[in-house]
Computed example of a mutant assay.
Amino acid sequence: MEKLKFTFQVKPTTDGKSNYIAITAIVTEDEKYFLIPEEFQAISQHTYIQTSKTFVTVKNTLKKRHQTRSVWIKTTEDILKTYVDEDGNMIFQNQFLEETTKEQLTVVSKTCSEDPIAKILEKLIENQEKKEKQSIKKLADKFVIEKFDGKSSNANQWMEVFEKECERFNVLKDEERIEIFRLFLEKSCTDWYSSMIIKLTLHSEWLQWKSSFIQTYANKGWTTSKYALSFKYQYGSLLEYAVKKEKLLLEVRKTIDEGTLIDIIAAGLPDFITDRINKEEILHTKDLFSELGKLEHLVAKKKNIKKKTIPSK
């Protein structure tokens, strides 16, 4: 025999919560039909078929429960030894396979797909999946992380925060992380996500997504660093300036020590503000923020003086 036709079907597990691919029947070149016993149908028991190139395509084709595909597979020596004995009888796991007809095989397949219990279980699973999708959106609202737009954040540090939030809310499965990941991307990053879905699909490894994300959005130039360092107070709230400056610096280098952080934030403030702050008393950024809050009135006062000195027309 040069080839055998195998019938693959997506079947529900015993508890109905997930699916598995099964081989339900084998057809020979002379159109003889043989049934695989239910206890031997799981693809995991068919090693040589599972590792064939044809099965990769079958696996990508079968997406929904009860779907079937019958495909020819070229027989190797290992496949022949597994399914055909020395006398040409169809066997599997040391058992002779039951021969049937094409019509009977069709009836069996149709009965399995129309099993009322299976239909009820399938409906329950669909409802559960809908609830899980809704809960993922609710869960995303609890994540303490800004959306990533590819411009304002350090990709490595952003990804580190995202993974910690996933762990905090027990989002550990690859598929769940990939799904919730989409909710934290915006602007051109959503196009990148769509491309990745086409290339890898939702049922892929999270590490592949993480690696591609970092390679795509990692900061390879000095622009972000230079902007963070040169960012200075110009107008408005002193506290808002300081908080934004701290954020910019931490996005560039998370490991920056607090003393250096304080010095760089202070360097961007006007002299008439820093002259009123005792450097020795500022040990943490929160101390600096507290002092700046007390000095907000000086900025407002200076602004009013400028308005009064403008001559009227």
Rank of each mutant, 00 (worst) to 15 (best):
A22F: 00
A22H: 02
I23A: 04
T24A: 02
V27C: 06
T28G: 04
D30G: 01
E31D: 14
K32N: 05
F34N: 01
L35M: 13
L35K: 12
P37I: 08
P37K: 12
Q41I: 12
A42F: 08
I43P: 03
H46I: 00
Y48I: 10
I49D: 03
T51S: 15
V56N: 10
T57W: 07
R65T: 13
R69K: 14
R69A: 15
W72V: 08
I73E: 03
D78R: 09
I79Y: 00
L80G: 06
K81I: 03
D85M: 07
M90D: 03
N94I: 03
Q95G: 04
E99D: 04
K102M: 07
K102A: 11
E103D: 12
L105M: 07
L105H: 02
V107D: 05
V108A: 13
S109Y: 08
S109Q: 14
K110A: 14
S113P: 08
E114L: 11
D115L: 05
P116T: 03
I117F: 14
A118Q: 06
K123G: 11
K123L: 14
I125E: 11
N127I: 11
Q128T: 08
E129S: 10
E132L: 10
Q134A: 12
I136M: 13
K137F: 08
L139R: 08
D141R: 08
K142L: 13
I145Y: 01
